[in-house]
Amino acid sequence: MSERATAISFEAYRATRNFAALDGLRAVSVFLVFSEHFGGIGWTRFSGWLGVHAFFVLSGFLITTLLLRERDATGRISLQAFYIRRATRLLPLYLLVFLAVLGLSWLAGDGSWAQMKAAAPYYLSLQNELAELAPLHMTWTLAVEWKYYLVWPALLVVFGTTPRSALAAVGFCIAALAMIGIGGHEWKLLLPQNYIGMLLGTGLAIALHSRRGFALLGGLMNHGVALALVLLLLLWQRRFPLVADRIGTASAIAVYSLLVTLLIPALVAPRTWLARGLASKWLVFVGHRSYAMYLVQYVAANAVIAALPGLVVGTPLLLLSFGLALLLSHGLHRGFEKPITAWGHRRAAAVKRSPAPALAGAGAALRAETGHSPLL
């Protein structure tokens, strides 16, 4: 199949409402995280924890793509509607799992109860990265994403009136993070490596949203590039400790995030072999439940160990924990997560139908004054 045959047109890309292959990438990423936590030494050498940085790239790409398309469709970005959608998508399930783990820790009567009590103020204020080790320590990633959600959409409304200005805002943020990294500051609330992936995904979304940027990146939408990037990602994960020793952990994570970013164009082109594979029904099924799976992973693992007391960290625990987490997440997805998310979308749609506030309309007003088009 030729490069032209595997690519997607700009019009088709802009009309696509669901990128199934990105859900498949979520499924792979959440399995990588499980492998790091429960697979043992045979799996940890693959640095599965890097899967969270793939999630960060996807978050930046998808959130920015949706915001840009909203502005094209309605002439503005409603920050209120955005925050309603994000809050109802992330917080109810997170709080439900938090309460469940808090209750289970109390019933266990072991050290986990003291850990959860000490960490609770941070967990409830979404400053999870400041908490000491506790049963929900992996939720530091949710706190990182929430800070991005609070800041970036507002920056896009104010500064992103054209693709150039939006990319400039992304570049400024990356430069600021780089300066923090060069300065050697150890700010737990603002570690550069935790935000670089979201900003790279954001930059890609802005570029692909413009006709000229889409044309420049079209060369990434083919089988050869997809294969090369997958091999590079596998090599980077396998050799990550050695690479990190040479160039530093933050720089090694930044390169990994860049490779994931460069892979996304091949995934939004549905004819590439990689996109077809990741868009399989099984992977999409897991991908849709990956957030819940990420939250309940330790609940599932502890349940497996309680049922099979002799089981230790290794492939059996990994597979059983992953399967049980998927089962639990499916129930949560259908009975709790999906209904609340649907309500949030309805509420956000009602907000968007209301008159535009001054800030949300600033971008459209500036375009009217300057004659700038949202496309390059």
Rank of each mutant, 00 (worst) to 15 (best):
A108K: 07
A168I: 04
P265Q: 01
M1W: 04
G344Y: 06
H185N: 04
L234H: 07
R289I: 11
L295S: 01
L263Y: 01
A301I: 04
A131Y: 15
G103E: 04
V299F: 07
S321A: 15
V151D: 02
L167D: 11
A5Y: 09
W43H: 10
T249A: 01
Y291T: 01
V170E: 11
A365F: 12
A215T: 15
G331T: 15
G109F: 09
S257Y: 14
P153N: 02
V30C: 07
L58V: 11
V299D: 06
F322Y: 04
L375N: 14
L102A: 08
L155P: 04
S210I: 06
L66H: 04
F159I: 09
M1E: 03
G203N: 07
Y83T: 09
F240S: 05
L102D: 10
A73L: 01
S329C: 06
G160C: 09
L235V: 08
A131T: 14
A303W: 14
A27G: 14
S280H: 11
L259T: 09
P374Y: 00
F38L: 08
V351Y: 02
S59T: 14
G314F: 15
A325N: 13
G42L: 13
L190M: 13
H333Q: 05
D23E: 11
L208W: 03
L328V: 13
A250D: 15
R246A: 11
L102V: 10
A368L: 15
G160Q: 00
N222V: 08
A178M: 09
L217W: 01
P270R: 00
F240E: 12
L317P: 04
L283W: 11
L126I: 13
G277D: 11
G277T: 10
A252D: 05
Y298R: 03
N194I: 08
P339M: 15
T161W: 03
E70P: 03
A87D: 05
S125N: 02
A175E: 11
A131R: 02
I174G: 04
L328A: 03
A12L: 09
F159Y: 08
L58S: 03
K281A: 06
Q193N: 01
I63C: 00
S257W: 02
Q297K: 09
A7F: 01
T341Y: 10
T315F: 05
C173A: 14
H37I: 14
A143M: 13
Y256M: 07
P374Q: 12
P192Y: 11
R211I: 07
A356N: 12
R334D: 03
V299G: 06
L262N: 06
S105G: 05
F34M: 06
A134K: 06
S165P: 10
C173H: 09
L216N: 07
D72Q: 05
V296K: 00
